[in-house]
């Protein structure tokens, strides 16, 4: 069902934990759907120097969190913002169709954390893109 990369990041998740006094923190998902992702950022000179996550959810949610943090660590805030859920899923060698929303969750949590960081800095927030098509697909798929 899962690729080896998904299982690796599920079993040995990278960047788990919290950052004390983070520069940005964001959360996505809800307990009703069974997954919540929380992202903590440390930003120095517009570069994400540290990132930590905590995730409640299935294996693909945990693996997506882990992979997403790996992908944006060391990147500028703008580069991190441009990370798509597809890139997260591809880096994991794919996710089962019913689990694609887990990669969306990672993108959304990072966006929420970046906007929190921008708000803390007094910067205008960036517009978060909707992923209704995937959510719809998800709901449809599950009947």
């Amino acid at each position: 069902m899962y690729s080896e990369k998904v299982l690796d990041h599920f079993q040995n998740p990278r960047n788990v934990g919290e950052i004390e006094n983070p520069d940005g923190v964001g959360q996505a998902g809800n307990p009703k759907c069974g997954d919540i992702m929380k992202i903590y950022l440390r930003v120095e000179n517009d570069v994400i120097t540290d990132i930590r996550f905590k995730t409640f959810g299935c294996a693909s949610a945990i693996a997506s969190s882990s992979m997403a943090t790996e992908l944006v660590k060391g990147k500028t805030v703008e580069e991190a913002w441009n990370l798509t859920n597809k890139a997260v899923a591809e880096a994991l060698d794919g996710l089962p169709p019913v689990k694609m929303h887990c990669s969306v969750l990672a993108e959304e949590a990072i966006h929420a954390a970046i906007n929190n960081y921008r708000r803390n800095r007094g910067l205008p927030v960036w517009e978060e893109e909707s992923h209704d098509e995937l959510v719809d697909h998800h709901a449809h798929h599950h009947g």
Partner: peptide, 8 residues
């Protein structure tokens, strides 16, 4: 649980 925001 240690890595779960819900548990926290």
């Amino acid at each position: 649980r240690e890595m779960s925001p819900l548990w926290e």
